[in-house]
Structures are given as structure tokens and as C-alpha cells.
Amino acid sequence: MESLFKTTPLNDFWCRTRGLHFHVVGEGVVRVRTPRQERVCDRENYIDFRMRLLGEPGQGPQVLSPGIHSFPFKLGLPLGLPSTFLGKHGWVQYYCKTALREPNGLTHKNQQVFIVMNPIDLNLEPAGLGNISGQESFKCEVEHKFGVSCVGSAPVICKVTLDRGGYVPGESIGVSATVYNKSKVTIKSTKAALTETITYMARGKVVNAEKRELASLTRGKIRPGEKDEWINEQLYIPPLPPTNLRGCHLIKFIIEPKSLQKEVKIQLPIIMATYPLRNDGESSAYRSGTHYPSTLPIFRPWLEEKPTLD
């Protein structure tokens, strides 16, 4: 990381300071409320770097003249950092904090969040993730019988195929499926959804899980004896961080009966990466049209929670 910190003395007057302190923090935090309203917390530190940009210990106050003062510096980030992530019950976040201390004890503080994207190259992942150069696509098949008594009843047969098992944001997932309704129950709809499942751990235990639906495609009803086919339907992937946290991305193909019976789900795990698959002869790992998160919210809901009275 390369940066240029600037400070501006207030009101165009000379400013006396005891030091300008700089702190880079990278942390993973989980904060979960139990059904009894007890808080379970855990924390991991990835970066904790401190330095003085102005002033030395034991020296007297420094004087800053009116105007803008720049303090250039460089900081190399460690390898293998988890990507920035914000969830309902925790976060992985990186930020810089500065403190300008005056001789009278007054301290001016500021903080700036920055994003870390840990790269995942699909070209270095197992061959089964793509269909380039003759590799096979991802497939899944299920046979389900509706009704309380399934003896002698005909099934609903569903086959789902993805064009590959790894993608980058901005690409589209090619979904192909065949749903053959041999039952006597009308299928209200079928749906393909890109979902994210996040598992939160604290003190070595799973304390909560969060599921998000990121994108979806829906088709209409299938009457008894009818068949519906999805042919390379395109499910667009929005800007997302890569898959290198305690969670996973799934394609869920959902069959919803028209009656009160439970829906049928087919799940296919996929990888979200930062570098797309290359065709033979391509020298660059990048492909035009890919999109990554350029900004992430810095709002943490639990910081706004009002304390409860015991």
C-alpha cells in the first residue's frame, strides 16, 4: 500500500503538535446475540502497524505552518489477507487511523477504510471448474416424489447443468435444466438463484449463519405430464468479493409445488474468483467486462444499537 497523508492546520494559524501518529488495522470480528440476548464476540487481527509521521518521543512540540503538509510513506501488505467483507453478524475490514496530538491534550482523529481483495485465479484451480479445452461442466440430477404416500406415485425428474464451476463478478452463469413433471401435482414455478452462505465462528464454534440471495431467474408453472427446459439461461453475477472467507456461494435450483408441499432444492457449489479463465493463447489473466466491488459500506448495525437496561 502506498499513500500520501496530508494535514491542514486549522484557521490558517501556526499549529504546535506533539506528534502525528498513524495506525493501520486489519481485523475480523464476529458479534452475535444469542436467543437470551447475550453477546458472543470473537476477534482476529491481520494487520496492526503503527508509526510516527511527525515528532519523536521525548522531543518538544513541533510547529506546523499554515497550509497543507504531506507525509509520504509505503506499507507492504502481508500475503494471504482475507478479502474485505461486511455481514450481518461480523466483518473483515481494513482501515487507517491518524491522530494529531496538541500540547494542550487535544487530539484530532481521522479514519479511512480501504478495501483488500485477495486474488483467486481460476486458471490455478482444479480443472473441473471450467469447460475450456474440453473440460466437463457442472451437473446435478434429482428425482423427487410429491405426496405423503409415495408408493406408486410418479416422480418429478430434474437435471441441472452449469457451464462451469468458477466465475468472476460481471460474468454470467449459464444455467441449463430439464424439469419433467410426471407427478399429479402442478409445479407453480422453478427458480435458479445465486446465493451466499456465511458461517460465523466464535471461540472455535459455529455461532450463526447468514444466507443471501444475490441474483435469480424464475420460470412459470409446469402442469402434470409436462416438461420445461432451460437452455443456457444467463444468471448475471453482481460485484462480489471472492470466495475465500468462512462461507460459500451456491447455485440453488428450486422447484415449488402449487400445493402446500415442500419445495425441492438442488444445490451446486461454485467459486467466485478475481481472475477469470483464459482461452488458449490469451496472455492476460484479465477479461473485459468483469466487475469488482469498488466500494463497500462502512456501516456496522451493532454500533448503532442502544444499550439495554438490566
Rank of each mutant, 00 (worst) to 15 (best):
I254T: 15
D12E: 14
F114M: 06
E38Q: 15
P78N: 01
Q234A: 14
P9L: 11
E38C: 08
C15W: 07
N45R: 14
Q261Y: 02
S284L: 08
G130N: 12
K252A: 06
R246D: 04
V32E: 04
E56D: 10
G174I: 07
E143D: 05
C41V: 12
V142R: 15
L296C: 11
T8I: 15
V32K: 06
G170F: 08
L296F: 12
R203N: 13
F253C: 05
N181Y: 00
G165N: 05
S153R: 15
W14H: 09
Y167P: 01
C158K: 01
S3I: 12
L79V: 05
P257K: 04
Q59H: 11
L296S: 12
A209P: 00
T190V: 13
M1Y: 09
T274E: 02
A154L: 12
V175N: 10
K227P: 01
F138M: 15
L250F: 11
I255W: 02
R43Q: 12
G130L: 11
C248M: 11
F253H: 07
A285G: 15
G225H: 02
P155H: 02
V142P: 02
S153F: 01
E229W: 00
Q62D: 09
V30R: 08
A127R: 12
N279H: 12
K109M: 12
L20I: 10
E38H: 12
L250V: 00
T107K: 09
I173E: 08
V30D: 04
P103L: 06
S153Q: 14
E56T: 14
Q267L: 06
V92G: 01
I47K: 00
L217K: 14
L129R: 10
E136W: 08
K205C: 09
F49I: 01
L235V: 03
G67Y: 05
A177N: 07
G80A: 05
E125T: 11
G220T: 08
I298D: 15
L235H: 08
E125L: 14
Q112N: 05
K258G: 09
T197M: 10
V185E: 15
Q93D: 11
P269C: 06
R164S: 08
V32W: 11
E44Q: 14
H108M: 07
G225D: 03
G147Q: 05
K182H: 09
G134T: 07
I115V: 13
W14A: 13
P103T: 08
T107G: 01
V63N: 04
I255G: 04
P257F: 00
L214Q: 06
T7C: 13
